[in-house]
Computed example of a mutant assay.
Amino acid sequence: AERFIQTALREWAYAVAYANSDHRAAELPIWLHRYNWHRPHGSLKSKPPISRLGLTKDNLLRLHT
């Protein structure tokens, strides 16, 4: 959890000079999607966390944008 918080602060909360808190909050779901679906994680052999679920072709979670 501590590593996640450090990463969120570095890559989302303080990575950009947001116009206001509402704009920062609007960016959170976008950042979380990237973090969980696309961002390589060193502890997972450079794979994103979603790869640990072993999703099959017919699983709706595979349908993401």
Rank of each mutant, 00 (worst) to 15 (best):
E11I: 01
T7G: 03
E11C: 12
E2L: 09
K57W: 08
L60V: 14
L55G: 08
A26W: 03
R34C: 02
F4A: 06
A15V: 00
A26D: 09
H33P: 00
L60M: 13
R39S: 01
R34M: 05
K57D: 15
L55M: 08
R3A: 15
L53H: 06
E27G: 12
L55C: 11
N36E: 05
H64R: 13
Y35E: 04
A8E: 06
D58F: 09
P49A: 08
R39W: 09
D58A: 14
I5W: 15
A25F: 01
Y35R: 03
A15I: 05
A8L: 14
A13D: 03
L61R: 10
L32Q: 07
I30H: 13
R10Q: 10
A26G: 04
P48K: 04
L61I: 04
A8Y: 12
L44Q: 00
H23G: 04
F4C: 01
V16K: 13
A8N: 04
W12R: 05
K57R: 15
Y35G: 02
N59Y: 03
S51V: 01
D58L: 14
T56K: 15
H23A: 15
K57T: 12
V16F: 05
A17I: 05
K57M: 12
D22A: 14
K57Y: 12
T56V: 11
H64W: 08
H64K: 09
A17V: 04
P40A: 07
A8D: 05
A15D: 11
I30G: 08
N36C: 08
I30R: 14
T7D: 13
D58I: 12
P29E: 03
A25D: 08
N59G: 06
L61D: 09
N20Y: 00
A19D: 06
L32T: 02
K47M: 13
P48E: 02
S46M: 11
R62T: 14
T7W: 04
N59T: 02
N20G: 11
H38Y: 10
I30V: 10
P48C: 06
K57C: 07
Y14R: 03
A25P: 00
G42I: 01
I5D: 15
Y18V: 00
P49D: 03
F4H: 03
P49S: 04
S46P: 02
H23F: 01
A15R: 09
H41L: 00
N36S: 00
A25K: 07
L44R: 09
D58C: 11
A15Y: 05
T7P: 02
R34H: 10
D22F: 07
E2G: 13
N36D: 06
R3C: 09
N59V: 00
L63W: 10
D58V: 11
F4Q: 07
L44T: 01
K57S: 15
E2M: 03
N36T: 03
L53Y: 08
L28W: 10
I5H: 13
T56D: 12
K45E: 11
S46A: 11
L44E: 00
T56N: 14
H41M: 02
S51A: 15
R3E: 10
A8K: 01
T7L: 12
L61F: 10
A17P: 04
R52E: 14
R34A: 11
S46E: 15
H33T: 03
L44N: 13
R34V: 05
